[in-house]
Design a protein around this nucleic acid. Structure first.
Lengths: 274, 274
DNA sequence: ACAAAAGTGTTTGGGATACACCCATGC
DNA sequence: GCATGGGTGTATCCCAAACACTTTTGT
């Protein structure tokens, strides 16, 4: 079966950058390519658009097929249309990004050829995915200032320092603990989390974030270092990378109150911030 | 001649939202469709992607062909991929937006079926262009906080109140004159403009902005009102719409100092603004 | 002359920043 | 018991916001 057009048509594909946060480092989910071109290289999950689905639906479908992840929210990064970005034929890719709570995802890890990489240790990627990755990082850093994207990376509840570490990992800067907490609470979009069942909550908490698991999981690819990441993280203080133990203590837990956020959003719609 | 593929390919097109500012209102440039579908309706300039050009090159080319505008900078809005957004065939459109100094554009006005519309008076548009327009307004309002997009809408030099009216038109809010000036000057990206030749400067200034020209130009379409615009501008104070004369007085003129901006940008790269 | 816009400073309040000690927990 | 992280309050500073009168220009 073949499809004929009066004018040449490019192929249209989607690619998705999936960010995760393991309590210490920000990571992205990559798959290893099994076919040409770029066999053996790592790339973002994605695939070709079907004629009866939107780009976002396509990205969601490919994500489910390739990584087992069922994602609700995807944010569009934009279209990438360099003429020779795919050596096979002309392919325009619409890229998305999303943030997931790692605990929901660990199941997909043992899928062959799909793995999380800390953003500081991303290998060279297939196609123009290095470029897409840089754009995704920029976008994430922009968005986190205005949208509660960060909370999607954490579990249903989280401690203030988990949240702070997340912000520090994304933005690459350090905040004063007390000032950070004050500012976050002042927004009014966080509420204290009454642990519904302490054992259960702590159980899932540990299962997705203890250092032992993280270490064994990230295992052997600490030597993979690329230049583009040095550009991105050149100004990042080492502090966020040096403290090995950052989880497991008790503390007040919070949750993201969506109703309060929606009200907050309406109030702060238009303000001047050159 | 025809083109055959093993899998169905959507067509890929671009559309461009062109913002202009006439000293009082924010406008967009629309073209009237001469062919099916949506014959007679207004739409954004755009067209189909060629196989040897990027999406941005395509948008630039179509802009030149359809409106005579030679634009350097286009910002991508994103891809629009609703399955039935074009009744002819599956078309994915990559939308851009740009801001132009109206004085450079007035020449293109008399082209039949291309006209500027104040953003408050945009008619119903073809395809999903109403939606694209809303996205463009949102994006512009976001971007103006962080990027010096506004200056592209003004001439080489401008007065502080012209700049203020532009910000007020885009954001739909009112600023205190003195605070606005202080804040703008504090950024350090504006410099005083030494008029190179007073007569020449004032000449081109008047030629693109006097009220007489604006009035005759916008002439007869003040009755065109759409709901989606009411949504966007529901909270806009009437003040920006009621004062008829807002130009022509002398005053200190400024210009946008790109070198200073670049330095400013590097310094303020990462800051916390939830 | 009159109307509209340009030019100009100060005060005040709130939010951001900087900063240090004690306590609880886990090892 | 030791190390790590959790919990907590205050003083300062800077920026944003509010605010009015005089001068200049255009008609």
């Amino acid at each position: 079966m073949s499809y004929t057009y009066d004018y040449p048509h490019p192929a249209v594909a989607t690619d998705t950058v999936i960010f995760g946060f393991n309590g210490k480092t920000l990571e992205i989910l990559l798959i290893e390519r099994g076919i040409e071109p770029f066999t053996g290289m790592w790339a973002f999950p994605g695939g070709f658009l079907k004629m009866d689905e939107t780009a976002e639906e396509c990205a969601r479908r490919e994500l489910l097929e390739e990584t087992g992840l069922a994602i609700q929210t995807l944010k569009q990064l934009g279209a990438f249309s360099a003429v020779h970005r795919d050596p096979r034929e002309r392919v325009v890719s619409i890229a998305f990004y999303t943030l997931v709570n790692p605990s929901e995802v660990r199941g997909g890890d043992d899928a062959v050829n799909a793995r999380w990489f800390p953003v500081e240790e991303v290998p060279q990627l297939a196609f123009d995915h290095d470029y897409i990755f840089r754009k995704a990082m920029q976008q994430l850093r922009k968005d986190i200032h205005f949208e509660p994207v960060g909370f999607e990376l954490l579990g249903e509840s989280f401690t203030m320092s988990e949240l702070q570490r997340l912000y520090e990992a994304i933005l690459g800067i350090h905040f004063d603990r007390r000032n950070f907490e004050k500012k976050m609470l002042q927004t009014g979009i966080l509420d204290l989390y009454d642990e519904p069942d302490l054992a259960e909550e702590m159980g899932s908490y540990h299962s997705c974030s203890s250092m032992e698991e993280s270490k064994s999981f990230f295992g052997t690819h600490h030597e993979m270092k690329t230049k583009n990441i040095d550009e991105l993280f050149g100004t990042m203080p080492n502090s966020t990378l040096e403290t090995p133990k950052q989880r497991g203590r008790k503390g007040r837990r919070f949750f993201f109150n969506k109703e309060k956020y929606n009200r907050f959003k309406q109030d702060n719609n238009s303000r001047l911030e050159f």
